[in-house]
Amino acid sequence: MDKRIEKLKEINITLSKAISKSNKFWFEHILPSQSATPLFEEAEKELNAILSERPNDANFWRMLSNVKTYTMDYAEAITALEKAIALENKQKDKTQLIELAAHKDVQKPKPKVKKTSSDVAKRDLPFFKYHPEPTLTGAFETDTVVTCDCCKKPTDVYYTSPFYAIDDIEALCPWCIADGKAAKKFEGSFQDDVSVDDVNDQQKLIELTERTPGYRGLQQEYWLAHCNDYCAFKGYVGWQEIEPLLSEFADIETDLANAGGISLADLPKYLQDNGSCQGYLFQCTCCNKYRLYYDFD
């Protein structure tokens, strides 16, 4: 195998792993997770090394631009992509450069320890098997201190929707969700138990619907499963977010057919985060394969 192709594949694997662990999406203005940062650094180091030998290879400049985009180093991402364009002048790169330019003045945040005036929020957040990063996905808000409608305690980490109940619920703390108190007190659920894949285990369904924060869909939310267990919700995605992960999906063409019938070939034209066709990324908690659901506004 050509050493260049071999190196491209090697770095692409590292970059794909970094993206899958980053807990963020394309132009989301947050830093990658701590587990992803070393992988992005490794990919950047490898790219800089190969570019010192192959400065006229546009593919490596594109990959470096992708790394810098995820780490919010937008000025460096623009420089790398401009070098790729100078070498190959592809329209796709030019379009991406326009997007990058719109973010060039965004300040990269500094990692910081979250402070709170709420005693209850100083506790460690509970772990949700089917929604492991609810703060990063936006399921939990952290902009102010509110009172949980269930336990009546103050919290600066809280959930607002969706929650299906007769009572009008304004905010729930993570702990009342995790131990099932909120669902029991208000006789409600966080996911419609009809809008889920079939899993042959009633306790797993209870954990999903009564003890897991939901996500916001444009229409009715639907929860996917794999390996006879519900998947973990990873976040909101468009084509740019899932393209590097295509080889890691269980069966994306079946997912597309089940959700509404868009073909894989047409997906880049329609699927866009915060667009009219919104994607929702799930990951199997057993085999780590991805699954995709989407809907329209």
Rank of each mutant, 00 (worst) to 15 (best):
R4S: 14
K7V: 09
I11M: 05
P38A: 13
E44K: 15
K45V: 10
L47Q: 13
S65H: 08
K68A: 02
T69N: 07
D73C: 04
D73W: 03
Y74M: 14
A77T: 04
T79N: 11
A80V: 00
K90I: 07
Q91P: 00
T95M: 03
E99I: 01
K104Y: 01
Q107L: 09
K114L: 08
D119F: 08
A121E: 05
K122I: 03
P132N: 11
G138E: 05
D143R: 10
V146T: 08
C148R: 07
C151M: 05
K152D: 14
V157G: 00
V157M: 01
Y159Q: 04
Y159I: 02
P162C: 02
P162N: 06
A165K: 07
A171C: 06
A171N: 09
I177A: 00
A182S: 12
A183T: 03
K184W: 14
K184T: 15
K184Q: 15
Q191E: 14
D192W: 09
S195G: 08
V199R: 10
N200L: 07
L208E: 01
E210V: 00
R211N: 11
G214E: 07
Q219V: 07
Q219F: 04
Q220I: 06
C227H: 04
C227I: 03
A232K: 04
K234V: 00
W239N: 05
W239C: 01
E241F: 06
E243C: 00
L246W: 09
E248R: 14
F249T: 04
F249C: 06
F249Y: 08
I252H: 04
E253K: 15
E253I: 07
S263C: 08
L264F: 13
K269W: 12
Q272T: 14
G275E: 10
S276P: 07
Q278D: 06
T285C: 12
T285H: 10
C287E: 08
R291V: 06
Y293Q: 15
Y294I: 08
